[in-house]
Nucleic acid binder design. Structure first.
Length: 525
RNA sequence: GAGCCGCUAGCUCAGUCGGUAGAGCAACGCCCUUUUAAGGCGUGGGUCGCCGGUUCGAACCCGGCGCGGCUCACCA
């Protein structure tokens, strides 16, 4: 502590020396670091040095009594009119009209105008205030009033500089537009663009609403490993890392599914994990390498229960974030109110101009159909390795997906592409699985969980074969997970929802990067 | 990974035919006691993304590279 103090004194002494010498000699002496700075940054550093030399180092201040936020004053003006308040925030504009000035101070909620005049605050403090710069953080004490033009304002009695901004802010009217800078330096984006702040506050409300909703339905939030030797539970390539202590290669999780089901085996009955998943794949407007996903599992429930849970949970989040179940996304109105449309995958293909797969009996027939329809490009494997299920899925993606604009559940997925899902009673080729689609995009994936350990081992064996055929995203085998099923897992419904995508719809965000505070970017150098 | 587009003052943007760069905001100096994209007068500020080439001369033309955006491919 005394160390800090002496350092501070030392710094003040250096600053005093710098400020004492005349500016020309100063500039010459400062050649090097200071000189290479842009003019405005240099000016601000000099101002700071002078303050420190005068014993008024803003960075020495540890706290400020912020009694009100801008929005409280504006909304509560009737009762606050004439009362003393103290506010704090960033100086966003400064209109100097001589012996008085108008300053816009921005806090978390918005801006409020501050009216400062020498007559009220004293000549010297007023002169000091005039040396402050846009971007500086100030605390203001004063009386609430309304100007002639009707602007609710605070008439300053005292101003405190709480932090000096050494770098100028982007332009006040056009703000910060450069996408790259907005993503790399999100703090500037948050300061300058109110919409950005709104988006992230909405994101928080959405996430809270989901937790509240599930907690209110007796779910338990748990945390499952991010690091493990096997990244399974989804079709995706993982990131690889290494433990020094264990001298072991580890993967970052691509899903939480297999751990959450272990919790169900253990008897937790209703669990969820909301957090980051990591997938080492392409980056575009819908994909960030790390993204937020919630997975939840409910014992003694099936995929129909999951559908109800999903539509209600999302509709509830929409209301909490936007005040309505009806939102506009990129110019299209979307109604999230439950119940959502339900359509089997086979019916969806048929409805949107594809063939009727109910009449396709064998893989051979399906492959012929794929050739006729020109589906080869949509398939992940060579046609000869494809089953009817693979081809149905490809046909769905080609014919139906883009048409699913209003929230729609697509039901009953082929068993071949659903290795963790329980088969439909009476039809082993199909499973009790659904995905939710909005605006042609998948937002969730859910099923009646496969709990037969013997069948599960067969499915993993099948995935191993897929891997041999060149599918490096086939689900890796997880021995301990299979052992857990052997202990006995109740019939269970499970679901995963992509949180970022939900946030995108509810905030009208074009790109996933607009709903992730610090999206993954290449380093500049 | 491929194609297209962008990168000029702190920010938002101009920059013609190849002749060593401009505006507004911001900054600096001055005037102004209810302004609000305040106003008025004046001043300073540039590695034109980086490297190379063509040319007497390059922000501009050519090649390569970097970063970003979009589209496609890949992918939940």
């Amino acid at each position: 502590m005394s160390d800090d103090q002496s350092k501070q004194e030392e710094r003040a002494a250096v600053a005093a020396k710098a400020a004492a010498t005349d500016p020309a000699a100063d500039a010459a002496a400062d050649e090097g670091a200071e000189r290479s700075l842009p003019e405005q940054a240099r000016v601000r550093r000099e101002k700071l040095a002078k303050l420190q030399a005068a014993g008024k180092d803003p960075f020495a201040i540890v706290k400020y009594d912020q009694t009100h936020h801008s929005v409280e004053i504006k909304e509560g003006f009737e009762s606050l009119d004439g009362r003393e308040v103290s506010i704090a925030g960033r100086m966003m504009s400064f209109r100097d009209i001589g012996k008085a000035s108008f300053i816009d101070v921005q806090d978390r909620d918005g801006r409020i105008q501050v009216y400062a005049k020498a007559e009220n605050m004293g000549e010297e403090p007023y002169a000091a205030l005039k040396t402050y710069d846009l971007g500086d953080i100030i605390g203001v004490k004063g009386k609430v009033f309304k100007t002639r033009r009707g602007e609710i304002s605070v008439e300053v009695s005292e101003v405190t500089l709480l932090a000096k901004a050494l770098e100028p802010l982007p332009e006040k009217f056009h703000g910060l537009k450069d996408t790259e800078v907005r993503y790399r330096r999100r703090y500037l984006d948050l300061v300058m663009n109110r919409d950005t702040m709104d988006t992230f506050r909405k994101r928080t409300r959405i996430i809270s609403s989901i937790r509240e909703y599930l907690d209110g339905r007796d779910f338990i939030e748990v945390e499952t490993p991010i690091l493990s030797t096997i990244a399974s539970g989804a079709a995706a390539r993982p990131f690889t890392t290494k433990s020094n202590a264990l001298n072991l290669q580890l993967h970052l999780r691509i899903a939480t599914e297999l751990y959450l089901k272990r919790c169900i085996v253990g008897g937790m009955e209703r669990v969820y994990d909301m957090g980051k998943n990591f997938r080492n794949e392409g980056i575009d407007i819908r994909h960030n390498p790390e993204f937020t996903m919630i997975e939840l599992y409910q014992a003694y429930a099936d995929y129909n229960d999951m559908m109800e849970l999903c539509e209600n949970l999302v509709a509830n989040a929409a209301v909490k974030a936007t005040g309505s179940t009806k939102v506009t996304y990129q110019g299209t109105e979307i109604e999230f109110k439950a119940p959502w449309r339900r359509l089997t995958m086979i019916d969806a293909v048929k409805t949107y101009g594809g063939p009727d797969f109910a009449n396709v009996k064998t893989d051979e027939e399906a492959r012929k159909l794929a050739t006729e329809l020109g589906l080869e490009d949509e398939l992940k494997k060579k046609l000869k390795d494809c089953t009817k299920g693979d081809i149905l899925n490809a046909a769905f993606e080609k014919f139906a997906e883009e048409h699913l604009v209003q929230p729609t559940f697509i039901l009953d997925y082929p068993t071949d592409i659903s290795p963790l899902t329980k088969q439909k009673p009476g039809d082993p080729t199909m499973t009790e699985r659904f995905e939710g689609f909005v605006y042609g995009r998948e937002i969730c994936n859910a099923y009646s969980e496969l709990n037969d350990p013997i069948v599960q081992r067969d499915r993993f064996a099948q995935q191993a074969k897929e891997r041999e055929l060149g599918d490096d995203e086939a689900y890796p085998f997880d021995e301990d997970f299979c052992s857990s099923l052997e202990v006995g897992m109740p019939p269970t419904g499970g679901m995963g929802i992509g949180i970022d995508r939900i946030v995108m719809f509810l905030t009208d965000a074009y790109s996933i990067r607009d709903v992730i505070l610090f999206p993954t970017m290449k380093p500049t150098e």
